[in-house]
């Protein structure tokens, strides 16, 4: 047995398998003679076990495909999705209802040349992000509006297009901040706005290479709706639970400023 003195440091080393074998017996004798240290060892060992078990399940989770693709250096796969027929009727009715207020959304269903699945996907992702994050009080955004320059630079770099946060104060909405999100195989920026009554709307912007189109998308029943555009390599959706005509007005203003910002 070594004759050295032991300290609390040895408790950590023993727990982490770093205590040399020849010190083991001396360490145990020291613990036995020091109930305080013994109690501390027991407590740390319990915490360490709790820590391991809290995260043990992660190893069994299926690995998201985007991570495997990233490791292999593969391009993201575009998943083909079909839009259910009922959606067309519902969307047509909505477009008729708001056509007068926001003429820019008119007749987007007429041509049939655009990519329906890309539109669905954009709108669904934008709505999902809104549902999750707009409900958060303190963690709704990653970068607050007080750090606007940093947020715009960061998000622009991440999504790969110049993003200038629209000023929607004429509509009563102030910028809360922004965050970066996964969107299909891409990245998306989400900008969150809030009015004086606490109503929140979000602007969802992603780089979407192929599709063209625009319209209003609502998932079944209650809940927020998305006004969206897909064009020239980007996609944008404005999501909120405002009345459709008001949402369309706000969305139009946001859209105009986004376009102006992109070419500024």
């Amino acid at each position: 047995m070594s004759g050295r003195d032991f300290t609390e440091r040895d408790i950590h080393m023993a727990l982490d398998g770093e205590l040399p074998g020849e010190d083991r017996a001396g360490y145990e004798a020291w613990l036995a003679a020091n109930p305080d240290m013994q109690a501390r060892r027991t407590r740390y060992a319990g915490d360490a076990e709790a820590l391991r078990s809290a995260f043990a399940g992660v190893l069994d989770e299926p690995v998201p495909a985007r991570l495997t693709r990233a490791a292999l250096g593969e391009k993201p796969v575009v998943v083909e999705r079909r839009r259910p027929r009922w959606w067309l009727a519902a969307a047509a009715a909505l477009l008729l209802a708001v056509g007068g207020a926001g003429g820019y959304v008119a007749a987007s269903l007429g041509g049939g040349s655009h990519d329906d699945s890309a539109q669905d996907q954009l709108a669904e992702e934008a709505i999902a992000a809104h549902v999750v994050y707009a409900a958060e009080k303190r963690h709704a955004v990653e970068v607050p509006a007080s750090d606007l320059d940093h947020m715009e630079t960061w998000l622009s770099n991440r999504i790969g297009m110049k993003l200038v946060a629209p000023n929607l104060s004429d509509d009563g909405f102030q910028l809360v901040g922004g965050r970066l999100l996964p969107a299909g195989g891409h990245r998306a920026a989400m900008l969150l706005y809030e009015d004086a009554e606490g109503n929140r709307i979000s602007l969802f912007v992603t780089t979407e290479p192929a599709a063209h189109g625009k319209g209003i998308y609502a998932q079944s029943g209650e809940g927020p709706r998305a006004v969206y555009w897909l064009d020239k390599g980007y996609g944008c959706a404005v999501v909120g639970s405002l009345p459709d005509n008001r949402l369309s007005e706000v969305a139009k203003r946001a859209y105009e400023q986004l376009i102006a910002g992109m070419i500024s």
Binding site: F55, L59, E61, V63, A71
Partner: peptide, 18 residues
């Protein structure tokens, strides 16, 4: 080499989650 990297993803995810 890529296969070896892929097999580390679960542990990287656990570390990131913690």
């Amino acid at each position: 080499r890529k296969a070896a990297i892929v097999s580390e993803i679960p542990r990287l995810r656990r570390y990131a989650r913690a």
